[in-house]
């Protein structure tokens, strides 16, 4: 039974992540009075890309060829190390600093790969990505730190267990930290108001600019990794700040219920993201730091209230 839990834990993020991307697109389409593609479209896209031939720039080095693999591998490792549907797994990798720095590792290679082909788009994408990533780090780290201090542990699984039984007095700081985390989440996952995931040729794009030179299986890996990253952050938001519904038992019905609850929580978050993206415009690039500093300051206040 433990093996089953581990298998689900390992495969849950890569298996479900394209689905939620599809769902967000569908909701956005509905809000725009379009019919929209099926929610399974991202899966089909991935299959299509994996079956296609590839073109690689003659200026690109091994960094360009290698990056998609390491980026995807890191999202797998991180996806397996965060609380998703169960609190039973004890994983020594679940230290939140390790998670943050592992994700920084993937950003590092993504940005290098963007510069590698020597196109003007890639370089600017990398520059913007690293700018946003560097400024997000403070808010991201401090919002999770608030929880770690409240729970007296840096392990994400212990955090999610202890936050559930926190006294109501610490709900306010946790709420502040949640807002801080949400901003960092949107920045890291490349959603509005930071980046427009639906654009391919816009001068302000970030993520799409970096991966413009990719095609075939490597593009598939990067797109899939981006979807994984979205689900990872959504999962963290859902299970660290609203940690109810993680199963403590290893029976099939419990696991099924927990998985259902997890899907439900992510659905609510996806709905929120889709509504946000349909109702506001992307921010000007030099307005983004303000938002990111707000995230940091909120988390600092939260920590101030809790210590």
């Amino acid at each position: 039974m433990t093996i089953l839990i581990w298998i689900i834990q390992l495969l849950l993020v890569p298996a479900l992540s394209p689905l939620f991307i599809g769902i967000i697109r569908k909701i956005k389409a509905k809000l725009q009075n379009r019919r929209g593609a099926s929610i399974c479209q991202p899966y089909r896209d991935l299959r299509k890309l994996f079956n296609k031939d590839e073109v690689i720039s003659e200026d690109a080095s091994w960094i360009f060829r290698f990056s998609p693999f390491i980026i995807f591998a890191i999202t797998l490792v991180v996806g397996a190390s965060i609380p998703l549907f169960t609190g039973l797994i004890s994983n020594p990798l679940s230290d939140f600093l390790v998670i943050i720095y592992l994700l920084a590792f993937s950003t590092f290679f993504l940005a290098l790969a963007g510069m590698d082909a020597g196109s003007a788009f890639g370089g600017f994408g990398s520059s913007r990505e690293m700018t946003v990533a560097a400024l997000t780090e403070g808010g991201l780290l401090f919002s999770l730190l608030t929880l770690a201090i409240a729970a007296k542990s840096m392990n994400l699984f212990s955090i999610s267990q202890k936050i559930a039984s926190l006294p109501s007095s610490s709900l306010f700081p946790v709420g502040l930290a949640f807002v801080g985390f949400l901003i960092a989440f949107l920045a890291e996952a490349g959603r509005f108001p930071f980046d427009n995931p639906a654009t391919h040729l816009e001068l302000t794009m970030i993520h799409e600019a970096m991966i413009l030179e990719y095609s075939g299986k490597r593009l598939a890996l990067i797109e899939w990794a981006a979807a994984n990253k979205f689900l990872i952050f959504a999962g963290l938001a859902a299970n660290l700040f609203f940690p109810w519904g993680l199963t403590g038992q290893v029976t099939l019905p419990h696991i099924a219920l927990a998985l259902l609850l997890f899907t439900g929580k992510i659905l609510v978050l996806s709905l929120g993201v889709a509504i946000l993206e349909s109702s506001i415009a992307k921010f000007r690039f030099f307005r983004l730091p303000d938002l990111l500093f707000v995230s940091f300051i909120l988390s600092v206040i939260a920590i101030g209230l809790i210590i």
Partner: peptide, 16 residues
């Protein structure tokens, strides 16, 4: 990835 898509061709071409 090698098992799934290892057989696909990889072309080297100029950057767009």
């Amino acid at each position: 990835v090698y098992l799934w898509a290892g057989g696909r061709k990889v072309r080297t071409c100029a950057t767009w």
